[in-house]
Design a protein around this nucleic acid. Structure first.
Length: 644
RNA sequence: GCUGCCGUAGCUCAGUGGUAGAGCACUCCCUUGGUAAGGGAGAGGUCGAAAGUUCAAUCCUUUCCGGCAGCACCA
């Protein structure tokens, strides 16, 4: 047996994982929960009868944790069957943070039911029931599950491929179909788990199928990790953009416009700062900003194929002469029409048309979520029209050059917003697609080369590209370690042609251009939601809607405070004046809760010396500064990054 | 859209088959106080909407609207 460190252990005959762990040491024997044989996770009791590479899996390892969680699902199923024998079991896998199990039962589970189930689970763990594996014949297995009324299990076994082994796991009186591996006994699960909530889920993930009840739980290797996870959940709740949006008076959502945002002055300030920052970045690298119409004639959407495929998701309007129009769900057709409006030369390419495009999509009500998922939103969109690549040419195509430039720009923008960790996914040709294989080959190659050239880590997402071309998806990771897909770069060799766009090439002939759809932030509304949660509402100075509050200590200093606020505003800083009739401690608390980054406190002393006492959010001390110095320093600190 | 839960003052939440309360926020008054809540008074609600049961509904029932969680969706 070859161990992970390369050491070789000899055994006279067939051994189990437990034997091997025991041979290595008593500590490991105790910690072992499963074994990895030639890369495959197995039960600790599995007999290994050949030379193999083995690794003992413990509960602290990611593989071990996954087994633990999977077992938690089984223990839950056992508990449910004991308490509610009429419930049918279906699937119950491990998840990123725990597990779930889908049950079929006419009665909904109540929160009280969850408490009962959790208590029974803890009891099953204390019973320490041995978990054993059995291999069954297909027909016997189907008959068994059908016989005990488990129709979903029986249905599923019928669909397992002929060549696969059908294994059942038994713990106590509970028997479940499962590939495993599992813990040696229920006691190994420990008590670091908790049931979280119940929700509906479709049988086999299909909305056409019956809806089951999914019970979610979380499970960890230790109580400490469970506590940390629960704390992280609380932290996420504290940072929830819906709560902070209200507390910081950034926006509200209302039933008068479901799925659209009412931006308040501070929120709109933030929106405009972000828009202006992107505008400035784009101008520097040769984009031209445009603005297309919001309402476009039905015939255009028929030409793009949207009328056929996405009509349910579009808002439809009618003009008084009874023409049918759709509120645009995307900006590209408008940009193609701008491109197509006159004869274009290859000399104009690449042509980069950018728009802060206001889009509307009639999303299903259940999909809406704060400002993250809305029906009306704004994209930092642009379409880059490129020369049709010559399949036999040397060197980089325009498409590739533009893709590289875009990756660099995107990374720089993300860094400016405080996101350092970004992963890229390359989504390649889907089963249903348009265009010949040679074009797909080249297109995928160009995008892959571009990510490499930009030095970004990436993973493949096979078959997930759009029907008109492959795409890059940019996923950033926030302060809480959550992933958000924001940026996208999609290559499209269909739409320009479909809408009759062309340019005159060097050869004097007309060609349909290639088009790159690209966005960095994606939806600005959603991106602001992400920023709020990333920063927990404590924006860096350049983004803060209110950067400075000038607070007076006594009314004697009010006039000077007003002068200080004016000086800040004159320097382009977003400053607020607070000369209200409150004590300074009250003002400090109030503006700290409003998460305003800088407070300039002025009393008699400052007024006499033309100075300010500068206090930073979260700090406990103040710094005495001459007014002019403070303004100069803050202006510099508040500068928009990468734009000067 | 589906399943479950929820909807009482701007916010957080009590409460009752006989038409409502607290804290914070808000307004006014007193207070001029040096770094996370000074004191007092006042105003504020068709109890999400409609229909039904009832002598009587904020409370019970139904439908609708909206929110939350998950699923499905996300060109």
């Amino acid at each position: 047996m070859t161990l992970p460190d390369g050491a070789i252990r000899e055994f006279a005959g067939p051994v189990t994982g437990a034997d091997i762990a025991g041979a290595i040491g008593p500590g490991l024997a105790k910690a072992a929960i499963a074994v990895c044989v030639d890369g495959q996770p197995r039960d600790l009791a599995t007999v290994i009868d050949h030379d193999a590479a083995v690794a003992i899996i413990t509960r602290d390892m990611p593989e071990g944790l996954e087994i633990l969680r999977h077992d938690a699902a089984h223990v839950m199923a056992e508990a449910v069957k004991e308490l509610y024998p009429e419930a049918e079991v279906t699937f119950g896998p491990a998840t990123e943070t725990g597990f779930y199990y889908d049950f079929a039962r006419a009665e909904p589970f109540t929160p009280e039911d969850l408490e009962r189930i959790e208590a029974r689970m803890r009891e099953i763990v204390r019973r320490d029931e041995p978990i054993t594996r059995e291999v069954w014949g297909r027909d016997a297995a189907i008959a068994f599950f059908a016989g005990i009324g488990e129709r979903y299990k029986a249905e599923y076994i019928g669909e397992i491929p002929e060549n696969e082994e059908i294994s059942l796991y038994r713990q106590g009186n509970f028997v479940d179909l499962c590939v495993g591996p599992h813990l040696p006994s229920t006691g190994y699960l420990g008590q670091a788990f908790k049931l979280m909530n119940v929700a509906g889920a479709y049988w086999r993930g299909d909305a056409k199928n019956a809806q089951l009840q999914r019970v979610y739980g979380t499970a960890w290797a230790s109580q400490k990790e469970l506590d940390q996870y629960l704390f992280r959940l609380e932290e996420a709740e504290r940072r929830d953009h819906r709560r902070l949006g209200r507390d910081l008076d950034l926006f509200h959502l209302g039933e008068e416009a479901v799925g659209s945002v009412f931006w308040h002055p501070k929120g709109w300030t933030l929106f405009r700062i972000i828009e202006n920052y992107i505008r400035s970045r784009l101008e520097r690298v040769g984009y031209h900003e445009v603005k297309g119409p919001l309402l476009l004639d039905r015939s255009l959407w028929e030409a793009t194929g949207h009328w056929e495929n996405f009509r349910e998701n579009m808002f439809i309007a009618e003009s008084r002469d009874e023409r049918v129009l759709a509120v645009k769900p995307m900006n590209c057709p408008g940009h193609v029409l701008i491109f197509r409006n006159r004869l274009r030369s290859y000399r104009e390419l690449p042509l980069r048309l950018a728009e802060f495009g206001s889009c509307h999509r009639n999303e299903p009500s259940g999909a809406l979520h704060g400002i993250m998922r809305v029906r009306g939103f704004t994209q930092d969109d642009a379409h880059i029209f490129c020369e049709r690549p010559d399949l036999h040419a040397e060197g980089n195509s325009q498409v590739k050059e533009e893709a590289i430039e875009f990756c660099n720009l995107l990374m720089s923008v993300y860094r400016d917003f405080g996101f350092e960790e970004v992963v890229v996914k390359l989504a390649t040709r889907p089963p249903q697609r348009m265009g010949g294989e040679v074009y797909w080959d080249l297109a995928e190659q160009d995008l892959e080369d571009a990510v490499k050239a930009a030095g970004l880590p990436y993973t493949l997402n096979p078959g997930e590209g759009a029907f008109y071309g492959p795409k890059l998806e940019f996923v950033l990771r926030d302060a809480l370690g959550r992933d958000w897909q924001c940026g996208t770069l999609q290559l499209d060799f269909q739409m320009p042609e479909r809408l009759g766009a062309s340019y005159v090439g060097e050869d004097g002939q007309r060609h349909a251009p290639y088009m790159l759809h690209r966005a960095i932030l994606g939806s600005i509304e959603r991106f602001i939601g992400i920023l709020i949660e990333h920063y927990a509402g404590r924006f860096p100075l350049w983004l803060a809607p209110v950067q400075i509050v000038v607070a007076s200590i006594t009314s004697d200093a009010a006039a000077y405070a007003a002068e200080v606020a004016s000086a800040c505003k004159a320097a382009g800083l977003r400053a607020l004046l607070d000369t209200s009739n409150e004590k300074i401690a009250y003002k400090v608390r109030e503006h700290s809760l409003a998460k305003i980054p800088i407070m300039l406190v002025v009393g008699r002393r400052e007024a006499a010396g033309r100075s300010v006492a500068l206090r930073r959010l979260g700090g406990n001390d103040q710094e005495a500064l001459a007014l002019a110095d403070a303004v100069a320093r803050l202006s510099q600190e508040a500068a928009m990054p990468s734009t000067t």
